[in-house]
Amino acid sequence: MKHKRRFLPIVLFLGLALVLGACGGEEAGSGSDNNDTDFISVLTGGTEGTYYPLGGSFAKIINTHVDKVEATATSTGASVENMNKLKDGKDDLIAFTQTDIASYAVDGKQMFEGKPIDSIRAIGALYPETIQIVATAKSGIRTVEDLAGKKVSVGAPGAGTYASAEDILALYGMSMDDIDAQNLDFGESTSGMQDGTIDAAIITAGTPTGAVESLAASTDISIVSLDENKIAELKEELPYYSEFTIPKGTYGLKGDVKTVAVQSMLVTTEGMDKDLVYNITKAIFEHTDAIGHQKKEDISADTALNGVGIELHPGAKKYFDEKGIKK
């Protein structure tokens, strides 16, 4: 009888181990048809930019409208860093990026030279990312050429802003060597202008940008306009740029500012489950009214394929095909 009592706990332990092993056989994020929750990270940008609050809204929409999914927005260094995170091959990530940076990553160009990340797939474009050359009034900066020799923030390391800054400087026959370049995120950039440690910042983000709004509330600023002929030249050379006008009144501006923009977009990896991506795409584009940011006015399924230069994820393609939306 004593032997039987010793044996019973061993049998129970082995049975429990088998049950736990079976439950652990499927990983969250696999899109499997079990009772597990899929945990999704939404890679955004700095907390003072546009990606981060939008990512929080998207996470709430996904959690509300997609069964068995728990999404969380994560602050990152934005576009370039996000593409490199997708390179790791995890299939539980959605990322914000610029359309130009996504194309560079897939094609192995620019900052991804010789190191293509060909597993990236598009979910859809969101809104224009405006190139904003923000300067303090006291800096005396009124034109792109005035940036020469000045302390200018060109974006945090790993952010798409750096690539945009290079393009704009090159358009005027300049390079990073002509300015005192500072690698700062949006919040650091505007704080630096406020306390006088930097003169200007090139910021690529949806307008209005929270960090710039906060700066304008306490400091006299200007936004540098680009010349019409230079805008035309840039669009011809790099077609993912489009002309954009920052309207009078934004940041207290007394007149319209002519500049350019790329598109922001959402991407994921080719390995994310097709049905999961379909449900996420549908949830976001059919509940834009729940987005807690001004940019919701620009986000629509009808324009979600504009400027998308990389392959769509099959789940996203299924959604847009159903809606009759083509590139």
Rank of each mutant, 00 (worst) to 15 (best):
K2F: 12
H3C: 07
L8D: 03
L16W: 09
A22H: 04
S30A: 12
G31Q: 04
G31Y: 02
S41H: 04
Y52M: 13
G55Y: 05
S57V: 12
A59G: 08
I61C: 01
N63K: 09
D67H: 04
A71F: 03
A73F: 00
T76V: 08
L86Y: 04
D88L: 15
D88F: 10
D92G: 06
I94H: 01
F96Y: 12
A105Q: 02
A105N: 07
E113T: 15
P116S: 13
I117A: 05
S119G: 09
I123T: 04
Y127I: 15
A135T: 10
T136E: 04
G140M: 06
G140T: 10
T143L: 08
L147H: 05
L147R: 01
G149E: 11
V154S: 00
G155S: 11
Y162D: 04
A163G: 05
A163L: 03
S164L: 07
S164K: 00
A170Y: 06
M174L: 14
M176L: 13
S189H: 07
S191D: 09
G192P: 06
M193L: 15
I202Y: 01
T209W: 00
S218T: 15
S225R: 07
S225V: 14
L226C: 11
E233I: 14
P239F: 06
Y241S: 09
E243H: 07
E243R: 10
K248Q: 15
G249K: 11
K254V: 13
G255W: 04
D256H: 05
T259W: 01
L266H: 06
V267P: 00
T268R: 03
D273N: 14
K274S: 09
V277A: 06
N279I: 12
N279S: 14
A283Y: 02
I284C: 01
T288E: 01
K295L: 14
K296V: 14
K296A: 15
S300R: 11
G307H: 02
L312S: 01
P314T: 14
A316W: 02
K318G: 02
Y319C: 08
